[in-house]
Design a protein around this nucleic acid. Structure first.
Length: 428
RNA sequence: GUGAGCGUAGCUCAGCUGGUAGAGCAUCGGUCUGUGGCACCGAGGGUCGCGGGUUCAAACCCCGUCGCUCACCCCA
């Protein structure tokens, strides 16, 4: 007995259909072009890794590792996990391939799906997509941080993401941060009974995260808490100060947000986030920061690092909600052939147009002429190329622009030339 | 893991205090055998998420269940 069963995409996963997929490709292409203009090169990484890689880099006690990873036992009983983010993989690859011997800083970007088993909501999926970039090397010059931020801003501007805010903070290094965390913890304990249950719990688990709280009633209390900017060591303070100078030099608008902390263990010093409007509760389209100890933590030489990840799902959502989505080139030419006698010419010309890079639809079956033009219209073709018996005998074809019904007769060479220049002109 | 809201045609939805299902759009065909968008006519498409209960009778009321959405947590 065959059970009638409707298959559906697994919770938190989704299909990205045309025409949305065009927008995705457009955005990813923009990112590649911008990143490569800053001399970043693509790294293609595995989608799963040893579970331990993530546990050690992200932090065994974080939610991401503790309860959100897709972890399973391979057939040889080793534990592997679908990647919840890609920085760990980039660092692993950097070490594995001895990339510290490469000249200058190593600048890499990646594009692809990540996996986290959370409850889906607006802008959050279990399979989601990130575009990220990392700079690894011996230098932690603030100019590197600033260049990374400039690159981000350039991409977002180019992608037409309106109403975005860049927030920047420094969370210190492994010398000064623990001292600050302790100070903060002590202060939090004094006001513990005024805090909500979540924040009370965080006093023990991760005091920094209390600063992130959105609870309205906690806001006045949080404002009175000690700020890390007053507790940075001299080196961190200078680094942060120079970063701000660099940002000003580059004309990058930013907000200093002393409450911006990041959830992953490996961050040091510079942290940043880009938020956009109209995204619902999950309004961060990009997050990142410096992670100077991570390479060493994963077994490499002491190395500095900084990077970010853009949430593509959210970036795309923001582009769509902002009404800034660019017009995507659609179907160029619909070949309206009339009869079996005209079909060979239609096939031949369709191929030639396609070789010129024009998107062509060639009906696979004979259609009534009216129907054929109707279909051309519905498919959104720019032109209908009319190939009837007259055209075949005369060798001149009728090109009809659907938008204004203007027609002209062209021989094959003129036709190709005309459409090619049209295509270049329209960017289609 | 917690909470709330919602499930009727491919999509957006209507369906009154219970009387065995509808519209618009979309799709397909026709009016229309070399000129699309318009109009008109017609067709296909639904075990009303699923299961149980109440009732003479359930899309509607009750219980359960599954799914989706949004929010919390956390994060991109």
């Amino acid at each position: 007995m065959t059970e009638k069963r409707q298959f559906r995409a697994i919770k938190g996963t989704r299909d990205i259909l045309p025409p949305d997929s065009s927008l995705w490709n457009w955005f990813e292409r923009a990112a590649r072009e911008v990143f490569e203009s800053y001399n970043f090169r693509e790294i293609r990484l595995p989608i799963f890794e040893e579970t331990d890689l993530f546990a050690r880099s992200i932090g065994a006690d974080t939610d991401v590792v503790g309860k959100e990873m897709y972890t399973f036992e391979d057939r040889d009983e080793s534990s592997i996990s679908l990647r919840p983010e890609a920085t760990a993989s980039v660092v692993r690859a950097y070490i594995e391939h001895g990339m510290h011997t490469l000249p200058g800083n190593v600048k890499l970007y990646y594009i692809g799906p990540m996996f986290r088993r959370e409850r889906p909501q607006k802008g959050r999926y279990r399979q989601f997509y990130q575009i990220g970039a990392e700079v690894l090397g011996q230098s932690d010059a603030p100019a590197i941080d600033a260049e990374v931020l400039e690159m981000l801003v350039v991409l977002f501007k180019r992608a037409g993401l309106a109403l975005i805010t860049l927030s920047v903070n420094s969370i210190g290094c492994k010398q000064c941060r623990p001292k600050y965390v302790e100070v903060l913890r002590q202060e939090l304990l004094k006001v513990k009974d005024k805090l909500g249950a979540d924040s009370q719990r965080r006093i023990e688990t991760n005091p920094l995260r209390v600063l992130d709280s959105k609870l309205p009633e906690e806001q006045p209390i949080i404002e009175t808490l000690p700020r890390i900017s007053d507790h940075l060591c001299a080196a961190c303070r200078q680094h942060f100060s120079e970063l701000k100078d660099e940002l000003n030099l580059r004309g990058i608008a930013y907000e200093e947000n002393w409450r911006l902390v990041r959830g992953l263990d490996y961050y040091t010093r510079t942290t940043f986030e880009v938020t956009a409007e109209g995204l619902g509760s999950q309004n961060a389209v990009c997050g990142g920061g410096r992670y100077d100890g991570l390479v060493e933590l994963l077994g490499g030489h002491p190395t500095k690092g900084i990077g970010f990840a853009i949430g593509s799902d959210r970036a795309i959502l923001s582009i769509q909600e902002g009404g800034q989505a660019p017009k995507m080139p659609g179907l160029g030419v619909f070949v309206a052939w009339m009869s079996a006698a005209t079909y060979p010419a239609a096939v031949r010309i369709a191929r030639k147009l396609r070789e010129c890079g024009i998107a062509v639809e060639l009906p696979p079956e004979a259609m009534k002429f009216k129907k054929s033009l109707g279909l051309a219209d519905k498919l959104g073709a720019r032109y209908a190329l009319i190939i009837g018996e007259d055209e075949v005998t005369s060798g001149t074809y009728t090109l009809k622009r659907l938008a204004d019904a203007e027609q002209k007769k062209l021989n094959e060479n003129d036709l190709l030339e005309y459409l090619e220049s049209e295509r270049r002109g329209s960017g289609a």
